[in-house]
């Protein structure tokens, strides 16, 4: 009995971590370039609805993913325009994008009532039945939809891009020493735009995976449930490093999965305390790492091309 619970918990841990990992990868690039994209919660929500709607009307997962990418890019562009070009406060911009997204998704979902009761096509499981039937491993790893696998490979790719490619170097340089980048003749603004748009795309994809990867439906009224903020927390706890952030995401995913199981079991520890855990860990981690050098040097500050 308890054995089954552990297996289903591990399986759920991977499943719940997948959207977090996707969103986190984008957010790392954005924050490394100095822009805190707080709108990821809202963009995720929009991506979740977009994925469902596109999948419902086009009956194709591929179209749904492409539509989600396009939406994420547009929303990322909007955030980038406001925070980079207009130099608005990044916190306020993000929070307002979230408010806008909550309203907009509720509004649109109310208009698309036909999608409500229907389950749409979800991400396929790529492994053959035989592999899924392998005890333990099959249940935990091979029953996962393809999206989970991609999400788990992504942090490694992100680490390579961030540390080994020229663009990754540019992004890190823009976040730490924008003036140096400008002196080298590169466009700080352009790189920041790219990084923020990247975070928009991945946030939308994360939302899409949340709905299409598992449940196959959208629930109005904030179905992302603060996951965007959990990702922001994971990025901080992970010290803006893709792999360490991925570990933080998996731990938070595990807490989330455990919390859902405890809710059903009526355990000694109230499940709400497990729900608090990611946020408490983040506050402690924030306190511990302030003095460290991990924080991008222009984190959250506006870049003014005129000031040297």
């Amino acid at each position: 009995m308890s054995y089954d619970i552990i297996i289903s918990w591990l399986q759920a841990t991977l499943r719940w971590s997948a959207p977090l990992l996707l969103v986190a990868v984008g957010e790392i690039f954005s924050e490394r370039s100095g822009i805190i994209n707080m709108g990821i919660e809202g963009i995720m929500l929009c991506g979740a609805l977009c994925g469902i709607a596109a999948s419902f009307y086009s009956e194709s997962i591929l179209v749904a993913v492409l539509a989600t990418i396009a939406l994420g890019a547009v929303m990322g562009l909007a955030v980038a325009y406001l925070t980079v070009s207009r130099r608005t406060n990044q916190v306020v911009t993000g929070l307002m994008v979230n408010m806008l997204a909550t309203g907009a998704t509720n509004l649109l979902f109310a208009m698309m009532s036909e999608t409500r009761s229907t389950r749409v096509g979800t991400f396929p499981i790529i492994f053959p039945q035989a592999m899924q039937r392998i005890p333990i491993l099959g249940e935990i790893f091979f029953c996962q939809p393809i999206s989970t696998w991609i999400a788990f490979i992504l942090p490694f790719i992100a680490a390579v891009v961030l540390y080994k490619t020229k663009w990754g170097l540019n992004v890190r340089a823009v976040g730490d020493h924008p003036q140096a980048v400008a002196t080298a003749g590169l466009s700080v603004i352009k790189i920041k735009y790219q990084a923020v748009i990247c975070s928009g795309i991945f946030a939308a994809l994360g939302g899409c995976v949340l709905t299409l990867g598992e449940v196959g439906y959208f629930a109005s009224g904030g179905m992302t449930g603060g996951r965007g903020f959990i990702v922001m927390a994971a990025v901080v706890v992970g010290g803006w490093d893709p792999l360490r952030t991925a570990i933080a995401c998996i731990i938070f995913g595990a807490a989330d999965a455990a919390q859902l199981r405890l809710q059903g079991m009526g355990s000694v520890i109230p499940y709400q305390f497990l729900q608090m855990l990611p946020y408490l860990i983040t506050v402690v981690a924030l306190t511990g790492m302030v003095k460290s050098s991990h924080v991008p040097k222009t984190w959250g500050a506006a870049y003014d091309p005129d000031s040297h």
């Binding site: 207009r86 306020v92 806008l100 909550t102 309203g103 509720n106 509004l107």
Partner: peptide, 18 residues
């Protein structure tokens, strides 16, 4: 839908800061 309210609020603030 009454969710339009939060859209109006958010848009107003975004335009004010933009």
């Amino acid at each position: 839908s009454s969710s339009m309210t939060s859209i109006i609020m958010a848009l107003c603030v975004l335009f004010v800061i933009g």
